[in-house]
Design a protein around this nucleic acid. Structure first.
Lengths: 339, 339
DNA sequence: TTGTAGGCGTTATCAT
DNA sequence: ATGATAACGCCTACAA
């Protein structure tokens, strides 16, 4: 066959279905949209016609008439460059896409060029979208909450200061960190240090708070703190500083698995056994957790679930269903060999 | 009616702009769409009105009337689960998104559930999209080329057997492999082995062919071949088999960086120095390349560019511009310390 | 329960 | 160059 570069036969319309089924367009519309009040026999012949013609409603027409787009936008504030390579982002998107697949909503992505945020803003407010999902890495960046009241928006992570109006879903970092630490206290460890994350990031702050809460609850010293920036190297450096304090440390809670990885190397280079001499618990349950030796006991960070929940909340918002404004997802302890 | 929760003032319409500018809707439409034949002064007042009202064309209406959606779909045949976590996929998408950002096309993703490909098919052919981009991992899976002739489609990677009709863009694996090998022959290596990729994947086949071509060109033995499956472990195993042949090998071209990493460990465990005793060149220039020690000399695989080119070709196709059916992207040698 | 008819915001075809 | 006036395909009161 000769490949025409042009389009082919036009898609069947509601009207054609109506003709074939011998009913009015209104009836077809009702059947297609699952209206409750339609005579079963009619519905039947309509459905037959739909299949015969392989009819699919035209989205644009539907949107124009109903003023609903059935589209939600994934807004990526960062410069397009690196986002997609980030496994965190990838997992969130996966969760979103998976949930949306169970609905009739479509996902479309727009990376708001910081060069021209107004363009993005106008697009969103131009009636082209039913709702917005914001996944940023500047944790707490809710600058797009201005859209609230105009258009439903759901954020990943809570804002730096919760003004009580934006919808968001976050992982319960504090509880997770406390659980990680409890694994240590529960095993009789008495000198528990932590390699904290950056204190200008919510995850860093919350995880440190969780560690501190549990350590105090157990009546232990809460001064064994060194901070890193979530990288392997910073974890190693922090572990080194901790050890150089000359105190006898028998356990470490690292605020993420990468820093735990850094701690491993220092611990091992100093001849300390894991977990015999020093037990280690991480956070995130990522690639590093399983590839380390001994395998890292850590806190599972439900990133995909986070995305799924975001999408769920947004759809609820769009359809006017009552929804919690803030959702905090629980974490779980994954026990392996390091603690 | 009662007030809808959250929603606000309706977006300004073309009609409102026309009223404010004191012209007809047709004229406004012309101005907005940059029609050549409009009186400058008129255009001016229209633009003023557009800004004043912060007018944005309604996408659905525009689509309905023009029968153009300005939307392209990224089709992901795999099961949703793992795709996003794959760095290759992530980079391709990044390239696509970046290019599309320079156009007026929107990107929307649909992961075709293998459970129900017909649904996807109907959506695509239902006039909801102007074109399709297919990124699959089953290299050569062009099962969606059936859409050709109905809707423009561009694939990542060439089909197993090129029937001469589907548009695709691929990286020149063969040339890249030859360049990698030439780095070795050029340095006077005489006994050059290769750790080939799976021979049921195009990348595996092409890279082996490139190695073979260069090795023969240099008049060397082309029997030093062992195959892996692109994983680190398989690379180590292949290296071991190569060494166990008892031949004196002074260089190795690994079909990807991960297998090169595996080769490194075996080489080092047998006390062979890199590159003094055995020079190594990889392919992909990924994370492994820089984290290995000594840093790996490798072939840069332009994944992001691949995505960008795909989008470019698709848009050209949609707009009826002449375009090459097959695009082969050049690779480049990245010289580091292993060869 | 089913059909009629008006409209959703643009583009496109004609005249003018 | 500009302006009426149909479509575009569907939804939704409202009427029957």
């Amino acid at each position: 066959m000769s490949a025409e570069s042009g389009q082919a036969r036009p898609a069947p319309t509601l009207e054609m279905v109506a003709a074939l089924a011998g009913v009015s367009r209104a009836t077809v519309s009702r059947v297609v949209n699952g209206s409750p009040s339609v005579d079963p026999s009619m519905a039947d012949s309509v459905e037959k016609a739909v299949r015969a013609l392989n009819y699919v409603p035209n989205r644009a027409a539907r949107t124009l008439a109903s003023r609903r787009t059935y589209t939600v936008t994934l807004l990526v504030p960062e410069s397009t460059s690196k986002v997609f390579a980030d496994p965190f982002f990838a997992s969130v998107v996966e969760g979103i896409a998976r949930y949306l697949n169970t609905t009739e909503y479509m996902l479309n992505m727009v990376t708001s060029s910081e060069s021209n945020p107004e363009k993005t803003r106008r697009y969103l407010l131009g009636g082209n979208v039913d709702g917005v999902l914001v996944v940023s890495h500047h944790t707490g960046d809710h600058s797009w909450e201005r859209l609230n009241g105009q258009l439903p928006v759901v954020f990943a992570g809570r804002p730096l200061v919760d003004a009580g109006q934006s919808y968001f879903v976050e992982v319960d970092n504090e509880e997770g960190a406390a659980a990680a630490t409890a694994r240590l206290t529960g095993a009789g460890r008495r000198s528990i240090a932590t390699i904290a994350g950056p204190q200008d990031m919510l995850a860093g702050v919350d995880r440190l708070a969780g560690w501190r809460a549990e350590v105090r609850r157990a009546g232990l010293d809460d001064a064994l703190v060194e901070t890193g920036d979530f990288t392997v190297a910073s974890g190693a450096a922090a572990m080194r500083r901790l050890l150089d304090r000359g105190r006898n440390i028998d356990a470490v809670f690292a605020a993420n698995d990468q820093m735990a990885s850094g701690a491993y190397s220092v611990l091992q280079e100093r001849g300390l056994r894991i977990p015999e001499d020093v037990a280690v618990v991480g956070f995130d349950d990522d690639y590093y957790a399983t590839s380390l030796s001994p395998a890292l006991t850590t806190i599972h960070h439900p990133i995909t679930a986070l995305g799924g929940k975001m999408a769920e909340v947004l759809v609820d918002l769009i359809e006017g269903r009552p929804t919690e404004r803030v959702n905090r997802l629980p974490t779980s302890l994954v026990v392996r060999d390091s603690a």
